[in-house]
Simulated scan of single mutants.
Amino acid sequence: MNKKILGACLLAFSPLWAHAATFDKFVPADSKIGFTYSQMGVSLDGEFKKFDGTLSFDPANAEAAKVTLSVPLSDIDTGSAEGNDEVANKDWFNTAAHPAASFESTAVTVDGDGYKVEGNLTIKGVSKAISFPATFVENGNTGTFEGKFVVQRGDFNVGEGAWSTFDIVANDVNVNFSIVAAQ
């Protein structure tokens, strides 16, 4: 009789176990990493066309989440071919020496209806700890992470020489993302 009760309990709770899912595959084609910056007082938008990385996110155990991202800087779209060429040079991203920017999470905590993500952002060989809010919306076998944060380009030596002052190109770069992941 005890085996029947145990079996019934296991069967009754199996839908709860089946629901627990780990999102561990990025869907870059449905994702976007964009940015907004100000040049000579005019707000301009751009985006990074590609990214790669690793992900392990279980909504039921968010604090165990891990993410790494690598963003090839040569795949930037500043809105113009001239701008794309300019930011690849030594004064800006120096893509010959530093082909990618990267992010690696160090902690994820539940924060209200969303999450607080902490980690290290590396650009041009300079790493800085950052923290930002993010949300996650599950939709069947996929889910979307959204968030935004501000990067001060001067902290990463993006814009050296004549570009190191912030009178032409502002120091603040607003990064926004909508990253789709699958189970």
Rank of each mutant, 00 (worst) to 15 (best):
N2T: 07
L6H: 01
G7H: 02
A8R: 05
L10G: 14
L11W: 10
L11Y: 11
F13K: 00
F13M: 13
F13I: 14
S14D: 06
S14K: 03
P15G: 08
L16A: 14
L16S: 09
W17D: 02
H19A: 14
H19D: 11
H19K: 10
A20E: 14
D24Q: 10
D30R: 10
K32G: 03
I33K: 06
I33L: 15
S38I: 09
S38V: 13
Q39T: 09
L44H: 13
D45H: 13
G46W: 02
F48S: 01
K49W: 06
K50H: 13
K50F: 09
F51L: 05
D52K: 12
T54H: 12
P59L: 02
K66M: 10
V67Y: 00
L69D: 00
S70C: 01
P72A: 03
P72I: 02
L73A: 12
S74N: 14
S74W: 00
D75H: 12
G79T: 10
G79R: 07
S80V: 02
A81L: 11
E82H: 09
E82C: 01
E86Q: 09
K90A: 15
A97D: 15
H98G: 04
A100Q: 14
S102H: 06
F103N: 00
A107T: 04
A107E: 14
T109D: 13
V110H: 08
V110N: 12
D111H: 08
G114Q: 03
E118L: 08
N120Y: 03
T122N: 11
K124H: 09
K128P: 02
A129I: 01
I130W: 11
S131C: 03
A134C: 05
T135W: 06
N139G: 08
N141W: 04
N141R: 03
T142I: 09
T142S: 14
G143E: 03
G143A: 11
Q152P: 00
Q152M: 13
R153N: 07
G154F: 14
F156W: 04
V158E: 07
G159S: 05
G159A: 08
E160F: 05
G161I: 06
G161T: 04
A162W: 06
A162S: 10
A162C: 01
T165Y: 10
D167F: 12
N171L: 07
D172W: 08
V173C: 08
N174H: 12
F177Q: 01
I179Y: 03
I179S: 01
V180H: 13
A182S: 15
Q183D: 13
